[in-house]
Amino acid sequence: MDRGEVLSILERHDGNRSGLIPILEDIQARYNHLPAEALTVLAEETDRSLTDIYGVATFYKSFSLKPRGKHLCSVCTGTACHVRGAPIITEEFERRLETNAGDTTPDKEFTLETVNCLGACALGPIVVVDGHYFSDVNSAGVKRIIKKTRAGLDKVQVKADRRIFPVSVNCSRCNHSLMDPEHPVDEAPSIRVTASFGRKHGWMRLSSLYGSHNLECEYEIPADTVVHVFCPHCHAELKGASDCPDCGAPMISMIVRGGGIVQVCTRRGCKGHMLDLNGGGF
């Protein structure tokens, strides 16, 4: 754990004035759990008592003080799910993953957890894996869920989610197509641009699925870096018209084929983006 990283998370929360839970959420998002050292830093920097922080961190099931695996699998054992057979589901998961509820598999792939009521009792027994809900699970379904997760839930989900759709874009200056069908990202043609940050300068391929934040890059981009993005054809910087509404970093803009522009935040990790299909100001 890096002290500077925690400090930068705290900075984003404006030191003292922001609530404790959003800070803990961000720390957990970064490390996948709440490392003890991070909590100590948090206590020192914000003048909170470690006792209070620890109390909150242990109160909520969604916070974990133990490192978690890549996939978080929560089995609901609330009253309704319990009578509909949640204990059998839990056992089946324990058997198949060879771990106990509350623990992580040795290969750090799965963390198995039980939770108390997810508010969807009529659909029980409920299992949630990485934010994807599975209803009416029976013990035969457990195997399927694990298989699906190993294959990558997000991949399966892209087609099913109607909010995610592909866009084709051109450079806003030379109007050359930026699409690169040779190198698919998310199994769709990617958007190829040139990225530069620090001393590094290389290709970057963005997913063309609007709503997906997957990308590939020649160099690993550290979190929170603001990247300069250029058109690979005319080498002009793809500067946007406005700053990101979420984090304030500049946005890049590209022309959507069929009319309109799409703007994407240039800060690594920030999910700010806008699609304006009618506007197309320039």
């Binding site: 008592s49 006792t51 209070d52 620890y54 109390g55 242990t58 109160f59």
Partner: peptide, 9 residues
């Protein structure tokens, strides 16, 4: 001091 507190639930 706030050395001890409630934990868990």
């Amino acid at each position: 001091a706030k050395a001890i507190g409630f934990r868990g639930r």
